[in-house]
Write a protein that binds this DNA or RNA. Structure first.
Lengths: 192, 192
DNA sequence: CTCCTAAGTCATCGATCGGTGACTTAGACC
DNA sequence: GGTCTAAGTCACCGATCGATGACTTAGGAG
């Protein structure tokens, strides 16, 4: 026997594996049998624990509460930190993409859009908005910068644009500074 | 009888309806029966004409060759034109989103990534790259600007970020100018 | 060792899907 | 009007999916 009979542990493993599956293959591309097979458990157990595939998806995505950089350091370093996390962090266990980008694949599901918006707003825009302090349309500037980071991540991984796909973090640094200054109206250092 | 027996016309109607379905519901969310039902035809006919669902998808997406603004006007007006087309154009027949954004929903399909990249590169980046003329890393700047436009469109429609979702074209105009100038190193007028 | 509860399994259902081949029918041509 | 071809239909297959309920078994408590 590989594992003891532990309800909570099995539940956690199911959530972990379904996160990966949902991120990599999308909601429709993931079957309950797949997830159960990863854990080495009978598919029926998934329904006993989560009730439905939809509930499993919701709970898995809720638990994946995007690991967000805390606004601990100086505000000026936030753009570089967020770009690193969104674009360059090693998300290999999530099919090589940031969970937020991967979640776009599951756009067919009802909860997806709401959860996406919640994670983007509370996880990233709230942190970023400090940079726009003092500007008139603070929220708009913040979302525009967030849109840029998200777009870069998508072009890199989901589309595979030639130049951006090969670009390093250092390549983007000067442009990150330029755009951040253009949007937030103040210099933003981008060196680590 | 609603329509005469016309192979080419029926084929065209199948392609048209499948474009909408694939864009709105994604590849997995669209069934051949759905498409056939829209046209009012037997599902088997779809296979007679296209061989497989995958081929139907490929041909439908190829035919949707994203309507791209031609680089006819002055180069300086390109950013505003592309933003209008990508973000504010009325794509109601494609589920309210630009076909490129909608295509992200079908990321499960093999051809999707390739076709996405092709359309983005040949349809948009090639046009945009004129703006980066004279800059050192021309291609990178171009892709970074394209990433921004794409990200804005995604935040607006797929994520539904509060401020951006309600923003008008005029709201974005000054920031479009600022970012374009930051990336391309020259002033870019944004008034229509 | 026994027993009892909960963790996990098995068999199966009904629906839907992509796909196939035999069939029917519309409509142009003589 | 008959006929022949191609457009379109019908019945059906095998696979897969989400989901259900009856069943089996592990493992701690006494």
């Amino acid at each position: 026997m590989a594992h003891k009979r532990d309800r909570e542990a099995t539940r956690a493993r199911l959530l972990e594996c379904s996160r990966l599956r949902f991120a990599r293959d999308g909601y429709d591309g993931t079957s309950v049998r797949d997830v159960a097979g990863d854990v080495g458990v009978d598919p029926a157990l998934v329904f006993r624990y989560f009730g439905s595939k939809s509930s499993l998806f919701t709970e898995a995505m809720a638990g994946s509460s995007a690991p967000v950089v805390l606004p601990d350091g100086p505000v000026e370093e936030l753009p570089a930190k967020l770009m690193h996390q969104l674009v360059f962090e090693d998300w290999s266990e999530y099919a090589g993409e940031h969970p937020l980008i991967a979640m776009l694949r599951s756009a067919g599901h009802e909860d997806t859009k709401d959860r996406l918006r919640q994670q983007v707003c509370e996880g990233y825009l709230d942190v970023l908005s400090q940079l726009a302090d003092g500007n008139e349309d603070k929220n708009l500037r913040t979302e525009l910068f967030g849109a840029w980071l998200l777009g870069i991540g998508i072009l890199r991984t989901a589309v595979g644009t030639p130049t951006l796909a090969k670009a390093t973090e250092e390549d983007l640094r000067p442009h990150l500074a330029a755009v951040a200054e253009a949007l937030f109206g103040r210099p933003v250092p981008t060196d680590g």
